[in-house]
């Protein structure tokens, strides 16, 4: 089935490429469990495009991050991009905030059945050499150190995928493959990890975050991978003017950084989980944003990235509001 989708994608891109400035998609990398983004201008490279559960990167961020597109003239052709359900929400949020205009992107929507978390694979097959990984029906088949492992896909999906309500793109120009079924339809399922943590006593929660965030090395992969962290090079984590953080690596700095990051995403985070995926120290940083997202949904009934014309609640006020 995946192969059929791949062929369909190649065909669609082939047709569209002449009208596109470029096509952003995924291709295989040196790691069988992870793909790498690919930027295609040359039709010869289209066959390299791939799909499937290893395509974990959210490509939407590339549309706003220098220098990939900064120098593209306004009248340039649109950019083609592959988006999964969660990626499309990031795209919608960026359109909402006018970082991207809808007519500048040609969206290849990819219904998603979940992406693989390589750490979960490692927990099962060890960190030894994974030679190849393929998907057969609902199983991941891994050849590692001469042994073949057959693991249920469900057991190695990324944490965010397990509570996914939007596996299908919110917006797209073309859809590649069959529509996927959401894994969750309730706040309870989507925010189960937040709830689990919230149900613990506050001391335990504090201890949890202290021990998790203590590992942070301030490499900023979480920030740079976030499609909605639009400050990038101008981030206050590194400036002295203003100087919010020192270069020390104590818990105060780490807490401050991660909570500034989260606050900047309040009402904007689309829960794509990139921050957590890219963390070299395996810190569940998406959880912080999930907590905010939950508050946003419960308090303001707002979920980012679902409506290209919607205004994020923190960027607006209602004239009828009583407390202004």
């Amino acid at each position: 089935m995946l192969e059929t989708d791949r062929i369909q994608l190649h065909k669609l891109v082939e047709e569209a490429l002449p009208e596109l400035d470029m096509m952003i998609g995924w291709t295989e990398s040196c790691d069988p469990l992870q793909t790498t983004p690919v930027f295609i201008r040359d039709a010869k490279l289209i066959s390299k495009l791939t799909l499937g559960p290893f395509c974990s990167q959210n490509l939407a961020g590339y549309l706003v991050k220098p220098p990939a597109l900064e120098s593209v003239p306004k009248d340039a052709k649109p950019i083609g991009i592959c988006v999964k359900g969660c990626d499309s929400r990031s795209l919608v949020a960026l359109i909402q905030e006018k970082f991207i205009s809808r007519d500048r992107v040609r969206i290849f929507g990819i219904p998603c059945r979940g992406t693989i978390d390589w750490r979960k694979v490692a927990q099962r097959v060890g960190l030894s050499d994974v030679k190849s990984a393929t998907v057969e029906d609902d199983f991941l088949v891994i050849d590692a150190s001469g042994t073949t492992h057959r693991i249920g896909l469900e057991d190695v999906l990324a944490r965010k995928c397990l509570g996914c309500r939007y596996p299908n793109p919110i917006i797209q120009d073309v859809l590649v493959g069959q529509v996927a079924t959401p894994r969750s339809s309730s706040l309870e399922t989507t925010y189960r990890d937040v709830d689990a943590l919230d149900n613990k006593p506050i001391e335990e929660r504090l201890a949890f975050w202290q021990s998790e965030l203590d590992r942070c090395i301030r490499c900023y992969a979480c920030r740079n991978a976030c499609p909605l962290c639009v400050c990038q090079d101008k981030c206050i984590a590194e400036t002295r003017e203003p100087r919010w953080l020192t270069q020390r690596v104590g818990l105060p700095e780490k807490f401050l950084f991660h909570f500034i990051h989260a606050m900047h995403l309040a009402g904007r985070c689309t829960g794509c989980g990139e921050c957590e995926r890219v963390c070299p120290m395996d810190i569940p940083v998406t959880l912080i944003k999930e907590k905010l997202n939950k508050i946003m949904e419960e308090m303001l009934g707002y979920s980012a990235g679902l409506d290209p014309d919607g205004v994020p609640p923190l960027l607006t006020f209602n004239p009828g509001e009583t407390e202004i």
Binding site: V230, C231, K234, I236, T239, E241, P242, R243, H264, L314
Partner: peptide, 19 residues
Amino acid sequence: ATCPPKAIQLQHATDNQIL
């Protein structure tokens, strides 16, 4: 308060002054 990179500063109450 809204500016994420704090590029907009009040001239008599800059972030650095408040910090």
